Computed example of a mutant assay.
Amino acid sequence: MPDNELGQPVGQLLSGWAPRLAPSAPVLKGRYCRLERLDSSRHAEELFEADRHDTTGESWTYLPYGPFGTLADYRRWVEGVQDGEDPRFYAIVSTERPEVRAVGVLGLLRIQPEFGVIEVGHVHYSPLLQRHRAATEAQYLLAAHVFEELGYRRFEWKCDALNAASRAAAQRLGFSYEGTFRQAVVVKGRNRDTAWYSMIDSEWPGIRDRFEAWLRPENFTGEGRQRSSLGPA
């Protein structure tokens, strides 16, 4: 750790650092899915129909909105967020099956180009996306965009500390747990302690290699079952 002229410890000097660009890509394409800017006219009906497969509404438990009882309600929500830049919402359009359709949503938020920090959030996967290759590839596409195209230094994942599925997903995808912020926010009238995870640019090459190895077609049987799992090295 370097010292300053007073002999006090200071952080590493980032020679040549400059603020990064804010995300602007309208589409991110992969093998099993593509991410498209969320748009009511193109995605609302498909997403609403996909979400109806969650008959209990369980997938909305930890989000500050939803479930939506009618297409009109869902369309109004999409129209209210689709043009925002922070959060910047994407629809996940599955292309791995014959029927190409929107089956999930995620977004980039808390975007800080001056620091090179950005977060993935508002992740909502319908049952038609859960446990499919496109679910993992969507996260890979976003992380690759953040680190390789935008040049950010830090990618964050935050979730309700009680959301065991989200916490497991973060670790499976290569995020590292950093701690829990107690009584961080109130969601749907309930307290939320928030668990923080991150990955940083120096870790990305190894995480990218694991993603790409997992996503290769030969890693899957004819029925779509994985041969090797994705997880931290």
Rank of each mutant, 00 (worst) to 15 (best):
L28Q: 00
G11M: 09
L13D: 01
L28M: 06
V10Q: 12
S24Y: 04
V10R: 15
Q8M: 12
L35K: 06
E36I: 10
L14D: 12
P26R: 07
G16L: 09
L13G: 00
R34N: 02
L35Y: 05
K29D: 14
L38M: 08
S15R: 13
L35T: 07
P23I: 07
W17R: 04
P23C: 09
V10D: 03
V27A: 04
V27E: 12
C33H: 09
L13P: 00
G11A: 13
V27I: 13
V27H: 01
S24W: 03
L21W: 03
Q12D: 12
G30E: 01
A18P: 04
Q12S: 07
A18E: 15
R31D: 07
L28T: 01
A18G: 10
P26K: 07
S24R: 10
A22R: 15
R34E: 14
G30Q: 02
L28P: 00
P19Q: 08
L14N: 02
E36D: 13
L14Q: 15
Q8L: 15
A22M: 06
R20L: 04
Y32T: 08
V27K: 06
L38W: 11
R31L: 06
E36C: 10
C33F: 09
L28G: 00
R34A: 01
P26H: 05
L35W: 02
Q12A: 12
L21K: 14
R31V: 03
A25P: 08
Y32L: 01
R37Y: 11
L28K: 00
R34S: 03
P26Y: 04
P9K: 13
P23G: 06
G30W: 01
